[in-house]
Design a protein around this nucleic acid. Structure first.
Lengths: 350, 350
DNA sequence: CCTTATAATGGTAGCGGTACCACTAATGGA
DNA sequence: TCCATTAGTGGTACCGCTACCATTATAAGG
């Protein structure tokens, strides 16, 4: 293993001083074209790359950000990360990828490690958020952007989210318009702000026509397809009378539930309407055709990446950026009108 | 923004020298328990974290590896990366994630950037591989592991792959056993070693019973679902007589093709058998039930991660590790016997 | 021709650690 | 009692780079 050449090696070989080479590395103006040319040739010859650790020692920016997600295997996160990576690449930023599996402890460890590695910023998309860790980051001047989740007190954080309450409202409204009254909710964890907000929107829509949420029709999930499957099973078997529609807090759970219904021979949409949230590509498959509330996942990633890098590159702009994107209803084929109900939004039908 | 405390701040506060603090940081033996205790308290109080750049200057290991994939959005890669991340976490290694979209140029840039950041190793899973970039890595002592792809001359590289030729053979054999004769192949890019090998295995199986591959039944794809869809369309419309079965070089393309067949009203499996390769979770959905050749993606990630870190941590072990995993046929519901053909593997049937 | 401004370069002190050597005080053996 | 040993420290020279100041060469102005 050859030792990497240093700035001194290059300087000697080119017959100049370290300073001159350093100037060229940093694109400084005051170097004669001839010297620059000669030094560049030597650099090329030795495949010289400046030692980033030596550079970083000066306390300048490191050109690295951390991205913390729950599980990259989940298409939601992989698309989000892709959006982030694409903008980072433009700015020549590298990203550290961290999976937490929703465990607060893992998240703490990752944040510590990222701090230690002196990242310029962190994008947080994981389910749990430990406010103490975040405080530590801010204290050290590390820029932070929350994406697709909120904290109780967001006042001091940059964030990018969809209007989850509105999304939940849209979903519920769609089902209500189709005449559904007994609507189940497959929930995500209750410490998750998207779940909370989607549920709030759902509840609001029901409330508007004087309907309450039946607690027996709320089934707990954790945003995974498996949990959706289990929830679907539970809903189909134990609740009587059976709900005519299900609003799942995300697409993965909606699809999981549909797996269960399919297994039990319950026809979607005619015996059971299903609506999800996220609009992951999977839902668009012909054999699924999931009606859902769309949030542009990639865009959220890209926007959060841009927000973060702007904050890093222009720290003098102190303003906090808080972006709320509008969700959109995507009607496909998993929701149908309740049999025997006229096309009215309200009223006692049946 | 507070300036981070340095080792000197801690030393002063604790009334000792830099050296002593450094010893404690590195768990050296010769420090009295009382001093250690006192210094640790000061560290805790100031939330001291050693500056990794200063540490790295000494030319020691950085605790970071790069992972280069084609597209993290592709479930194959996200599962692979997850496997890698999980073992890296155990060793407290961080990973830089890089997407290339299959572009050689992007890959070159990423490798350069990783070199600059002095990663200890790189795991390459991207479609293109630029041998010059690799040479640069090896030259600098950066450990390299190829995963799920090979080079023409692999002699000097660590790698982890499945036996793709065997997988292709298995797939073809399965279709032949069901009586298929006209079997189409939806190909990946031909510079991709998995595609090449899978095709070779496919060809071999056909050859064994005296069948050749009909060039008109080879349709070009690029491993994406969209390309599979297009290939399926082309196959269904233009080839006459239509093939009775399709072997797609990966699951994504197989599912894409099934989308096309579904759109055209071609029944899978009764009018068209489909077999894929990879065994991504999506294929196990009830509405897909794709018969496929399984390679344990997660394990390949985990094994390549372990291989890499072992190479990094024990550089004295010079041996090169080359691991070939066996593929496994997973029979689900997208392949059926050719109508009107008896249960014979060979012969002129019909 | 000398002075002064300017462009191009060299020299060197950090940045925050680690490694290694030097020193001190206490301990033990002769 | 004295010297050798050793555990526990402190001191300092790097690591490779940047920032800043000093120096030299060159050109312009009087």
């Amino acid at each position: 293993m050859k030792k990497s050449p240093t700035i001194l090696d290059i300087a000697r070989e080119a017959g100049v001083s370290k300073s001159t080479v350093s100037r060229i590395l940093n694109n400084a103006e005051n170097v004669s074209p001839r010297t620059r040319q000669r030094v560049l040739e030597v650099m090329l010859k030795y495949r010289y790359r400046p030692n980033i650790f030596a550079r970083g020692l000066g306390g300048r920016r490191t050109g690295v950000v951390g991205v913390i997600v729950t599980d990259i295997t989940n298409p939601f996160y992989s698309i989000l990360v892709r959006g982030i990576e694409d903008v980072c690449r433009v700015y020549r930023y590298n990203i550290f990828l961290c999976n937490t599996d929703g465990r607060e402890e893992e998240e703490r460890i990752h944040i510590e490690s990222l701090t230690e590695r002196r990242v310029d910023g962190v994008i947080l998309a994981s389910t749990m958020l430990n406010e103490d860790s975040l405080a530590g980051l801010l204290e050290r001047g590390v820029k932070v952007v929350l994406v697709a989740r909120l904290l109780e007190d967001n006042s001091s954080f940059n964030y990018v989210v969809v209007d989850n309450a509105m999304g939940g409202y849209l979903a519920a409204k769609h089902l209500l318009t189709l005449g559904h009254k007994r609507i189940a909710y497959i929930a995500g964890p209750w410490f998750s702000s998207p779940n909370l907000d989607r549920f709030a929107g759902f509840q609001k829509a029901l409330g508007e026509i004087g309907l309450g949420v039946d607690e027996k029709l709320i089934v707990q999930g954790d945003f995974t397809m498996e949990s959706g499957y289990l929830a679907g099973m539970k809903l189909a078997k134990s609740s009587s009378p059976r709900p005519t529609a299900v609003f799942a807090a995300n697409d993965a759970m909606a699809i999981g539930a549909m797996e269960a219904f399919s297994e039990l021979g319950i026809d979607v949409p005619h015996e059971m309407s299903v609506i999800g949230f996220d609009d992951i590509p999977l839902g668009a498959l012909r054999c699924i055709q999931l009606t859902t509330v769309s949030q542009s996942i990639y865009d959220q990633g890209a926007i959060s990446g841009r927000t973060l890098i702007e904050r890093i590159l222009e720290p003098e702009k102190e303003g906090i950026q808080q972006i709320v994107l509008p969700p959109k209803l995507v009607v496909r084929k998993t929701c149908a009108r309740v049999p025997g109900v006229e096309s009215r939004n309200e009223g006692s039908g049946s």
